[in-house]
Nucleic acid binder design. Sequence first.
DNA 1: ATATATTTTTTACGCGCGCAAACTTTTTGC
DNA 2: GCAAAAAGTTTGCGCGCGTAAAAAATATAT
Lengths: 343, 343
Amino acid sequence: MSVEKIKNMEEFAAKCGVSRPTVSKYFNDPNSVRPKTRRRIEEALERFDYRPNIYAVNQNRRLTKNIGIVVPYLADPFFAEIARYLETHCIEAGFSPSLFSSHGKQELENEILDTLRSMKPAGVLLAPLGRSSDRKVVEQFCRDVPTVLFDSNIDGIGDVFIGSDNPQFTSMMVQYLCRTGEPPCFFEMKTPPNPNARKRRQGYLEAMEVQGHEPHIFEAQGEGWALEEIGLREGIRLLESGEMQTSTILCSNDRLAIGFFAACYQKGRRVGISKDCDIRVAGLDGHPFSSFTCPPLTTVSHDYEAISERSAEALFDMIVDQNRPASRQEKLFDGKLIMRTSA
Amino acid sequence: MSVEKIKNMEEFAAKCGVSRPTVSKYFNDPNSVRPKTRRRIEEALERFDYRPNIYAVNQNRRLTKNIGIVVPYLADPFFAEIARYLETHCIEAGFSPSLFSSHGKQELENEILDTLRSMKPAGVLLAPLGRSSDRKVVEQFCRDVPTVLFDSNIDGIGDVFIGSDNPQFTSMMVQYLCRTGEPPCFFEMKTPPNPNARKRRQGYLEAMEVQGHEPHIFEAQGEGWALEEIGLREGIRLLESGEMQTSTILCSNDRLAIGFFAACYQKGRRVGISKDCDIRVAGLDGHPFSSFTCPPLTTVSHDYEAISERSAEALFDMIVDQNRPASRQEKLFDGKLIMRTSA
DNA sequence: ATATATTTTTTACGCGCGCAAACTTTTTGC
DNA sequence: GCAAAAAGTTTGCGCGCGTAAAAAATATAT
């Protein structure tokens, strides 16, 4: 590697012995130039370290190669995991992903979308805040920029939505719980930050009816994304209230369940399916840490791989086709029941 | 807000009734123009939505307003949390943070630094992989770009290092454990991904010597960042081996401890300080979920706020002063003992 | 009111590259 | 070996803005 620094594409093209537009073509698509030419450029690339100025490139391209990834709360391992998959897919497809977290705040989500718009991205993968999103802002953004919504649906917004079939999650878990013991009550937030909660609740009600059982729902107070804390505090309240008429409880999501575990521990209630336990607790999500709770958490897991891969592919299709689907597409993936020893 | 779209600064300046260079000045620093002029621009800003083209801006500025934030593993809630603080600080100071995760891979870290370099950032906040970092690459990068290292130190690299005083962490915890019960053995990885582990080990050895106890270290096999899994698997191995000669164990970090909790659960060992428990488990880090384990984890917590704030400030200082410190600065923060019921 | 300092405008250039059109060279098919 | 096709080159324009220098306008001090 020579120490000599190359300033711009002009200089680099000279080193290659080809013209600047040819080098430009190469960087846009290495296969668009003749193999011999390509070799010459790549050999020069080994000798000198040159990279096109990204700002100059993006200023002039109609469409940048940037892809925005927006999640509502990155400190939630679920989204961290999904984001990791999405990033990888984008890179492999030759795009430059930019990762953003709304940190649960509407103003921040709005700002991010504003920033993103000015980045002229080829497309955006957006998991919106949901309930606390500024509908108009998100709607306008999706009109301006090719966007795939994932995880949290907002009716009628975005060209494509990829997510999980939440009612199926709950229904599957309710069936399992009923088959193996007492029918579950349902533990959820009164005002959940994520819109999927509503569908899970609905799924619970329907599944219980199908199974011929009376549903029982406990609504946890609290706002925001500190779900474990809410699960703990409200779990204690629930356990102390004596409102639980069953020894089986299904939590609307794994983080709530993790908090509820802590509540059970504090109140001296043993969680699990073995003889010496007195309460079964199940969750929903397949949280990355759900296998390390005590006892390991029985849950329904998202198909992380499928959701992220399909989301990315859907976006890539929109980008290469250069046209958005006529009608809004939706694809929901089934969850996988993960039987462990908590329920 | 008018529907009419403004193309560029030229057009926008016309709407304001001022010249383009003046508008340019305004965007670089709103206080650099006369109050009356500022008002005129800001009134126009309300009527039309115009934002300078970030690519054109960054191409021409010697120094962009971008700040890179790089963490080794974003799916680790510790880093997710720190990243959240850092992002906020950057935005408040008027910079545009870009978040990257190395996902534990050297190649990816190298690529990120390469990308970052081409972004001509004003500065970078870097938590390197550490042991598996490509020393030369990181070193060269830090020479080219003003960089503050945080969390993981690499000797002699970067202008500033901000982190925690790891030996102090261990020492404080060892003292506490010895004071309240049996002296602890130490559970760590043989080849930890994070370099802080080495210092914690050292801290353990020294603290035990000061207290006049024989140290016992158990080295967990395994590579990478799946710490809970390693803690679980190797924890089981440890419990089965009968090598534990004490009923108190200090884990090198909270994630390992969480895995060890699961191991104890599986082997029927009750963790905690109450009468009916037979093993005390402590961790180090103050992991965001450590208060929700069963039982809640006794640990030493990083001063997240201080580390992130100080890191950001150190970088801002370097940026405004435009000169790097003559000698390498280091600032280590003490941890805070968080007594819960696991030890 | 005049001189001085500050702010703004004008003018002009450059950043590094995409892109399109016309032209030239090389490759491919027959 | 020739024509057609493909690939590469040349030329030139434009993107949207930073920035510097000089000129003009305005504010501040005397």
